[in-house]
Design a protein around this nucleic acid. Structure first.
Lengths: 211, 211
DNA sequence: CGCTAATCTAGAACAAGTTTCAGACTTGAT
DNA sequence: ATCAAGTCTGAAACTTGTTCTAGATTAGCG
């Protein structure tokens, strides 16, 4: 409950270069193994070996497998946010742009379904001990959605809609990953939930100034 | 890939009475342990011991911990559906009734937060091998929501809205269970997503014939 | 440079999910 | 009642996440 814990994590004090490199190697190995076989294929011993780090060290950097995978997700999300920024969505209405952005993200995940599996399963399986990290992922996701809406100063109603969109996004992803929903179904769900954006702000002409 | 597997599960042929009793004992032990300490407290060895069944037998009835917990959820859901039926929601509009029903279910879960944790974590962590069982839970949830709407013959749009509501329900539950959202926040999310019901069918006077 | 604290390593050990196996018990059909 | 097939039991073994330990290495500092 206290502000910051002990000297456990190297992340708390600025990392030396070698530590930064270790951290990168670990995340890379994690993503690589995840890409192969999903959540189960990310075995801590293998991650340690692949990244040329002792098992104990791996656990010093990431206190659990879930922490590691959530950190991997943060990493990938950062990457994706950058990519999405470069090609902003083109829809007229905010709802369309959000749906477009999420479907674009979804297609990216489809290219590495195993990696997606590992990350999303970790995210939803995370318990309280991972809350800060999961929250960070959530904030990042919110930022992406708000970005695509072109909003800098959302109303509480809009924030609620975004929250629900995120819920739907995660859950729809899970149903797809576990083979219980088709890609088409995911699209429908996303498009459906995006209607909420228009509901929370029906009057506003949310089309962007097409530069 | 074939229709039905080998003679693995006793569930496939009708159970004898003793088998039915064993199954009940197992589910009871599972729920009991889950109520104590959530997902982690449901340890297969303990479940086996509590229900006076050999470990191997437990695995014959439920091929994994996740299968067991999802079955536990089915069980609890059946129970809850029965309870909810007795006191139907009273709201005027369909959206209100759905929100009321879900909040009622939510309050029930709050009474056994550890049990809720075990069941929901299992549900979202389930992989493809549990798809049929998870699907069953999903159908049951859909039935509860449609019931509360008072619909017997929903349109595709309404079904989409219900899907999104379920997504939100699961995901909001997870954020609450992992301490990242307050009860108030969950209520807001549920109420927000329930607006979709009105969107998918704005004209219709969805108030029930108050008998 | 030489010291001290922190970090890293290799490897053993532990915990809980899952599998396996030999033998005892039930069940159903004849 | 008896036999065969299927089921249950108890216990050991195996897997993978996690923790622990003793010693080597590194980093920061006087």
């Amino acid at each position: 409950m206290s502000a910051e814990a002990s000297t456990q994590h190297p992340a708390h004090s600025p990392l030396t270069q070698r530590q930064e490199e270790r951290r990168r190697r670990i995340l890379h190995a994690s993503a690589q193994l995840a890409s192969r076989g999903g959540f189960d294929a990310v075995q801590m011993r293998e991650v340690a070996e692949s990244s040329q780090v002792a098992l104990g060290t791996l656990y010093r950097y990431f206190p659990s497998k879930v922490h590691l995978l959530v950190a991997t997700m943060q990493d990938q999300l950062d990457h994706m946010h950058g990519t999405l920024r470069k090609k902003p969505p083109t829809g007229e209405r905010a709802a369309d742009r959000v749906a477009e952005t999420l479907m674009r993200a979804f297609r990216a995940l489809q290219r590495e379904p195993h990696l997606a599996d590992a990350m999303v399963r970790a995210l939803t399986f995370a318990d309280r001990s991972v809350s800060p990290e999961v929250d960070q992922v959530s904030r990042q996701t919110t930022a992406i959605i708000l970005d695509s809406m072109g909003l800098t100063d959302p109303t509480p109603e809009q924030l609620s809609a975004v929250r629900v969109i995120e819920h739907t996004w995660h859950s729809a992803l899970i149903t797809w990953l576990s083979g219980r929903a088709s890609i088409a179904q995911v699209r429908i769900d996303i498009e459906t939930v995006c209607k909420l954006i228009d509901v929370t702000d029906p009057g506003q002409h949310t089309s962007r100034t097409h530069e």
